[in-house]
Write a protein that binds this DNA or RNA. Structure first.
Length: 401
DNA sequence: TGTCCACTGGAAGGGAGGGCTT
DNA sequence: AAGCCCTCCCTTCCAGTGGACA
């Protein structure tokens, strides 16, 4: 086995969750946000803000940076609290209110249970604590479109309605989204309330990505560990992907990791290429792990169909195969409507490719294609739930003629 | 131009499961 | 224990639809 060299001095710095003291090329955005939030320091309610920008354009990093500063200010007696909730992780109204409340309520015995209460009750309890604090609360809802897409605008109604009952304290909401169009579908009243101020985060350009990487690399690596073209290469690859800085950092970190594991002394472009493949594969296999048994069965149906040379198939064809698999593995059969939804979900996750297509007299349906690397297909096939399917032998055909 | 197919995708609602309150 | 709430996964119902074909 190759000896594992230690070539990364400080791994934490290369994590995208690490908040550096300096955020290159985002000073203007920090200033913009700070300016809007400034009234909070005099205990006036700042405007709500909607932050729009693609993945890895520094939205979350900027907010966390400001949050860190606000927390410092809070400890020094400025009455302003910063609360961050990621709506991708907790996406139900209950989950979001639960999360916010428990960041506010410090007394462990008074914490809100993770289920069981009505939303009104949490809201009331939360208002009491917020009022008691006599502060301005800045509540950041990251990936806010996720929650609104799934549950409608309720959560936003709940939160903004709190201000109406508060006398001393106030809350301000900062919504973060990577979907520029999501406000189009909002009720106009909500849209104007949430988007009192809008800030757009443009994608990073290649040179900016280089700066970001260089700055972190300086603290993460010893001199000479990175070959000269590694950072430009990482930056170029990520710039192709909509200027995603998170992605650039992941590339650099995983490249170094691969170099270490190989026992190499230097990180080269070859490592970056391996890292790129690994990231893509890991992302899919992570998704696969979270699929329910039913989703996996639907995916398996698509895999089997494409192995039978049906590289394009319809919902009906998938459903037929699905019913067959359910029978073999002894699993309950869902309705076609439900399976159609599961197909749409797999499409959204990027595991398959599906588009609605009309076949004229033959009807209108989805045309489905498998879009999964071989490694992933093998991973699904080796899942325990399909053991009976893999060992399945079709009953001998009795020919009549 | 109208018909018709095989669905799509939205809406409403059921029921199980988690847990709280009284 | 009974009643309540929220979430998740699912079913049922149904209006809508793109485009080949007659």
């Amino acid at each position: 086995m190759a000896k594992r060299n230690q070539i990364v001095k400080n791994k934490k710095i290369l994590q995208s969750s690490y908040i550096p003291d300096n955020l290159p090329h985002r000073k203007d955005k920090i200033d913009e946000v700070v300016e809007i939030l400034a009234p909070a320091l005099n205990k006036d309610k700042p405007s709500n803000i909607l932050i729009i920008g693609k993945t890895g354009t520094g939205k979350t990093a900027v907010m966390n940076y400001i949050g860190k500063e606000l927390k410092k200010a809070d400890e020094e007696g400025v009455n302003c609290s910063f609360i961050y909730v990621n709506c991708e992780v907790v996406d139900t109204p209950y989950g979001i209110l639960y999360n916010i409340s428990n960041q506010i309520i410090t007394d462990i015995s008074k914490k809100i249970p993770f289920t069981g209460w009505s939303l009104d009750k949490i809201l009331n309890e939360m208002s009491v604590y917020i009022e008691k604090e006599d502060k301005i609360f800045i509540i950041v809802l990251d990936e806010i479109d996720r929650s609104i897409q799934k549950n409608g605008e309720d959560i936003f109604y709940y939160l903004t309605s709190i201000n109406e009952v508060l006398q001393k304290s106030k809350i301000s909401i900062i919504g973060i989204t990577n979907n520029a169009k999501f406000t189009e579908f909002l009720n106009p009243k909500i849209r104007s309330r949430l988007g009192e101020e809008k800030i757009i985060f443009p994608p990073y350009k290649v040179d900016q990505l280089k700066d970001i990487l260089s700055e972190r690399a300086e603290f993460a690596f010893d001199k000479g560990v990175l070959e000269d073209d590694v950072i430009p290469y990482c930056a170029a690859l990520s710039a192709q992907e909509m200027g995603d800085a998170r992605r650039a950092l992941d590339l650099l970190r995983i490249s170094a990791d691969i170099a270490e594991r190989n026992g190499d002394n230097k990180v080269t472009c070859a490592h970056v290429r391996s890292a790129k493949n690994k990231i893509e594969l890991d992302a899919v296999s992570e998704v696969i792990k979270t699929l329910t048994v039913q989703s996996k069965t639907v995916l398996m149906s698509i895999i089997l169909n494409s192995e039978e040379n049906l590289d394009h198939m319809t919902t009906g064809e998938v459903y037929t195969k699905y019913k067959f698999i359910c029978e073999v593995i002894g699993q309950s059969v869902l309705s076609q409507r439900r399976v159609a939804s599961l197909i749409s979900e797999l499409d959204m996750l990027g595991i398959i490719h599906a588009r609605v297509k009309s076949f004229g007299k033959l009807g209108r349906t989805k045309e489905i294609e498998l879009n999964t690397p071989k490694e992933i297909v093998n991973m699904i096939k080796s899942d325990d739930i399909f053991i009976d399917l893999i060992n399945y032998k079709p009953p001998k055909q009795t020919t009549i003629f």
